[in-house]
Simulated assay, not measured.
Amino acid sequence: MESFRWHLGNNKTVKVREELIFRCGFRRFRASPLYSQHSSADKHKLEHFLWSNGMHDLIATDFLLSVDPDRIIIKRLVFSGRPFKIFTKTAVVRYMFFNREDVLWFKPVELRMKWGRRGPITEPQGTHGHMKCHFDGQLKSQDTVLLNLYKRIFPKWTYDPHMPEPIPCVRNEQQLPMQEVA
């Protein structure tokens, strides 16, 4: 796990698992890193982008915080559905699942609504993924039902220690000559 500082003037994005060249002292290697938020908990949220600039430019500098092979990086997935029939605190929800088996599989997980209501799935309704849910307060028809799931992300082993030497920059003769440093 490393913590990095941005190099000044960089504003391009780098995606997760995009191959980068790392330079650690005299060693250079290619790898596809994962980015995560640093927190005091034992689970760390996956970041999908690293903001930087340029190809083969210095993106960031870093220092080693700890060497922890058991670091857990998680990705949040959100399923959403709409209340179909509302009876004060109970509602039939649709468009979250599309078969009865999925409703039964996710029955132990608590649902939440965008406006703050929480509650469990009580039973599936029919064979097309409709489900009856009971919430802790009055429901509104314009609210959305959400189901948060967390998936552990593992880094792919893309380490390549055999890096070709960088190609020297060829200068154009029409450019101004370089100034010598005394």
Rank of each mutant, 00 (worst) to 15 (best):
V145Y: 00
E173G: 08
H128Y: 12
L149A: 04
F87Y: 07
H44W: 13
S39E: 14
R152F: 07
F106I: 01
I167K: 03
Q142D: 12
D160M: 08
I121C: 06
S80I: 03
I74Y: 15
F98S: 06
Q125W: 03
Q174M: 08
K132T: 07
P108A: 11
N148W: 07
N99L: 07
I59L: 14
R76P: 00
W115Q: 11
Q175G: 14
H38L: 14
S40T: 14
K107E: 09
S39N: 12
W157Q: 11
S39R: 15
K114P: 04
Q125D: 04
R94C: 05
L77G: 04
K132G: 01
A60R: 02
F97W: 07
I167R: 02
E173P: 15
H48C: 10
P164A: 09
P164S: 06
V145H: 00
D68T: 11
R82H: 03
M55R: 15
V145P: 00
G81K: 02
K114S: 15
G81H: 01
L149V: 05
A91D: 07
I167V: 09
P69T: 11
E173N: 08
M96A: 02
L50E: 12
L139E: 05
W115E: 05
L147R: 05
R82E: 02
F84R: 06
K75P: 00
R152W: 02
R71D: 06
T158C: 13
P168G: 00
T90C: 07
V92N: 04
G126W: 08
H162P: 01
T90W: 09
I73S: 08
Q174F: 13
